[in-house]
Amino acid sequence: MTVLRVSDLCKSYGGVQAVCNVSFSLDAGEILALIGPNGAGKTTCFNLLNGQIAADSGSAEFEGRSLIGMQPREIWRLGVGRTFQITATFGSMSVRENVQTALLNFHGKLTSIVTLAGRLYVDEAMALLERVGIAAQAERPCGVLAYGDLKRVELAIALANHPHLLLMDEPTAGMAPTERVALMQLTAELARASSIAVLFTEHDMDVVFAHADRILVLNHGTLIAEGKPAEVRANRQVQEVYLGSGSVYGAAHGAEHA
């Protein structure tokens, strides 16, 4: 089942095409990586999908509904969860409360002024924290958490609305290598278990080739390759684009996936 269908998406800034005629689709339970060198248009593409900027033309449909022109919060309502390159959590709340806040809004309770928020959806929040493996830290304030744990908190928050699509912007940026693998493994498990489609951008090719089902490669705003990791790796154009930083992916991945 196709969850996300993007066709001919375009965005330019002052005459420079940041994203040009990008088309792809994403199925439920599939993990799709969006890669490309710096300035290739990954972030723009991402922000077009999550509602932070508006597209010039083209369409992006989530389960048959157009995302173009929607606010981030409306997109969330449709069932899209997000994580950020630099974690964004609520610093004045505990880990559990962070997840509870998302749950409160999911259940439409955010204008209630009567009940004590801290006592609502505790079990649900704990279950989510359990799933991402940080239930033990539930009562700690987010401000004191290790970065890897914060990423997990974000994941738990993003799962609160039972999303069908997760948009993850550089999910492992700033993490130690072992943590990266663990986080992406967790993401993959969650995606497969709940049939969540995942679209992520990433710099770390280890992560990309280990976990993506499919890979999109952007360069200068256009899609230059798309396919299974092996296909992409074999793609001539991709190799050229990545020649400068090819060491990361050529040697290391050849060995890993041989």
Partner: peptide, 24 residues
């Protein structure tokens, strides 16, 4: 301490995150 208050603080702590979890 009510859900409304949590929503307020969410908007102060991280408008980006609040927006991303559907808070107006």
């Amino acid at each position: 301490y009510s859900p409304f208050g949590y929503g307020l603080r969410a908007g102060r702590d991280s408008p980006l995150r609040a927006d991303a979890i559907g808070i107006d």
